[in-house]
């Protein structure tokens, strides 16, 4: 999304809807990338429903992100838990405080900068469901934001809600003047008084108000490149859905989204979850594992060779 800043590369996996397979995908893609030789930390960002450790076959770790949120532990390195993969470590989300699981704004800023400072090539965050500000922040500060959906109306609906939330937040952050930011806040309410329905409507209003901000708005849109991942496809038609959603992102938001890939509906997936082992471990040759490896391969393009650290030039 933005230019690659110094430090570990960050990839966020989100998509709004619970149950579309974000955690399963994060665990398996992380294993694939670690096996390609990169040092990877995978973070369970779901403090209200932690189970990334289960997908990786690890018992609930005693230390987790909850210790950082509760100010019990400042040093993220101490929260790292070893996995079965030599290059892969986990920051779990277990034992969160039920009364206040989500970190506040300043904690989130601190968390993100600490994650980037981890001495690894790549940090992969598995986001929780919904569009909580914490979820959106992780998504927007990441170098790559992956939106996962399955070919079902409920999933599509939540994915677009997620994308709308990400889009307007990102645009608001990119604007310089208070009045334009206020206008974007108004547009985020779908029943706003000005009748702004779409991003194109919003751009027209901004251009009237302040042409300079209009130019900035367009360049901010251009720099935002979410990546689309379709999970649980069963037919060729459902694979094409990724292309269609990409087209709609362009015609509705003006966004140049990338179709990252797809993973098929595979009976092995359920078996691997029940066995609490990554699918790429249990059935490395099944279709879903082949597709997961393709996704991993695409995500590490541009990362530089393993072992020499991340490419910092951006």
């Amino acid at each position: 999304m933005g230019p690659v800043p110094d430090g570990a590369r960050m990839i966020a996996i989100g998509g709004g809807k619970g149950g579309v397979g974000k955690t399963f995908l994060a665990a398996n893609v992380a294993v694939c990338i670690a096996r390609a030789g990169y040092e990877v930390v995978v973070v369970d960002g779901d403090l209200e429903g932690a189970n990334l450790h289960t997908c990786l076959g690890i018992p609930p770790p005693p230390r987790s992100l909850a210790d950082f949120v509760a100010n019990r532990e400042e040093d993220l390195v101490k929260l790292l838990v070893e996995t079965r993969e030599p290059n892969l470590r986990l920051i779990a989300a277990t034992h969160a405080n039920l009364a206040s699981a989500q970190p506040g704004h300043f904690q989130r800023v601190r968390l993100v900068s600490r994650l980037r400072q981890l001495p690894v090539d790549l940090v992969l965050i598995d986001l929780g469901a919904g569009t909580h500000p914490a979820v959106m922040d992780y998504f927007l500060v990441s170098d790559d934001g992956v939106i996962v959906f399955s070919p079902e109306p409920t999933s599509i609906e939540n994915a677009y809600a997620f994308l709308r939330a990400a889009f307007y937040r990102r645009m608001r952050l990119g604007m310089m003047t208070h009045s334009v930011r206020a206008l974007i806040t108004q547009a985020m309410d779908q029943h706003n008084e000005r009748g702004i329905r779409t991003p194109a409507d919003l751009l027209r209003e901004i251009e009237t108000l302040d042409p300079g901000e209009g130019v900035r708005f367009v360049s901010t849109v251009r720099s935002f490149r979410p990546r689309l991942l379709v999970n649980e496809v069963r037919t060729a038609e459902e694979i094409k859905l990724g292309f269609s959603v990409r087209s709609v992102c362009r015609s509705y938001f003006g966004l140049d989204a990338e179709y990252l890939g797809y993973v098929n509906h595979d009976p092995g997936v359920r078996r691997s979850v029940v066995a609490r082992r990554p699918l790429v471990d249990v059935q490395p040759d099944c279709d879903a594992s082949v597709y997961l490896q393709r996704v991993a391969h695409k995500l590490i393009q541009g990362l530089g060779a393993p072992g020499v650290g991340p490419e910092l030039s951006g």
């Binding site: 109306p153 599509i156 677009y160 292309f243 269609s244 709609v248 509705y252």
Partner: peptide, 13 residues
């Protein structure tokens, strides 16, 4: 097919 009536790709948007 993307913009067909009842298309999944435009659903809710």
């Amino acid at each position: 097919s993307t913009y067909a009536p009842e298309s999944l790709a435009t659903y809710s948007l």
